[in-house]
């Protein structure tokens, strides 16, 4: 039953995606309110799913790869809902919806919703660690999307080839300010998540810890480069994409190895 909520949610994101593609094909790229409403509606259904699943599990619903992906998609939608209107980045919905739709559809189609035979004991530190890290990933995902938007616009400005989408993208300086804020928010949340990992009370695989610190160091380096003006905005935007790809790979690795360990 709870999966139906997720399917409806995916349809909402798909609607935003279809509209964006149709608008791009027609050469009329208008963000409007549709994307924001579609993402908002999808977010409500995601929240309902996570709430039902959480109640059934008696803990934060991040016990398998499927739930982790849904939680990640929810985090991305949440951060978009928070920063989209605030930073006049309504267009980000057009970029956010495809990413959330892809993550969610993959989670729904892949056989990864493996229920644990034994009910996992609740560990508040573990849940805090995992949920903070995932929300941080949501911020990094949005920074990555803003990075793509920056690079698209920068490229068009450099080559003097301005397409319809150009007129709907926020100014370069506004986009860069949004990227910086998202990076700081994501980094702060990720640091919290990482620090809370030491209080879980269980031994953590050394590879995971090293990789997690690797991702943390990568974002720290991007922020340091930004803060001390050692990195040009275009490089920061490109590194946001690299950083999120690394974070996503790490997330996959963590949940995959966790599932391998939990198999009898």
């Amino acid at each position: 039953m709870d999966r139906y909520l997720l399917i409806v949610s995916s349809v909402c994101f798909l609607a935003a995606l279809v509209r964006t593609i149709a608008a791009l094909r027609a050469g009329v790229f208008r963000p409007g309110r549709f994307n924001f409403l579609a993402v908002g509606l999808g977010f409500i259904f995601q929240t309902a799913f996570l709430s039902i699943r959480g109640r059934a599990l008696g803990r934060c619903p991040i016990t398998n790869l499927f739930e982790v992906f849904i939680f990640l998609a929810w985090s991305i939608a949440l951060i978009y809902m928070l920063i989209g209107p605030a930073y006049r980045l309504s267009l980000m919905g057009a970029f956010t919806a495809p990413l959330v739709f892809l993550i969610q559809t993959f989670a729904l189609l892949a056989p990864i919703d493996v229920r644990h035979a034994v009910k996992l004991p609740a560990n508040p530190w573990l849940e805090f660690h995992a949920s903070m890290s995932l929300v941080a990933y949501g911020a990094f995902a949005l920074a990555c999307i803003a990075g793509v938007m920056y690079l698209v616009q920068e490229r068009q400005l450099k080559t003097h080839q301005l397409r319809s989408i150009f007129y709907h993208l926020p100014p370069l300086t506004d986009l860069f300010a949004a990227i910086t804020r998202l990076l700081w928010w994501g980094f702060a949340l990720y640091t919290l998540g990482l620090a809370s990992g030491f209080f879980i009370g269980e031994p953590l695989p050394r590879v995971q810890v090293v990789c997690a610190f690797g991702v943390w160091l990568l974002y720290a380096a991007i922020l340091q480069g930004r803060h001390f003006r050692q990195l040009a905005p275009r490089r920061v935007a490109a590194l946001c994409i690299v950083g999120f790809s690394a974070a996503l790979t790490l997330l996959w690795g963590i949940t995959f190895t966790a599932q391998m360990h939990s198999l009898p």
Partner: peptide, 20 residues
């Protein structure tokens, strides 16, 4: 009505796209 069609206004529009 999108985009500018004179040199002066194109320059100003581009400036706004870069700097806000």
């Amino acid at each position: 009505t999108r985009g500018s069609v004179s040199v002066g206004s194109v320059a100003v529009d581009l400036a706004e796209k870069i700097f806000g």
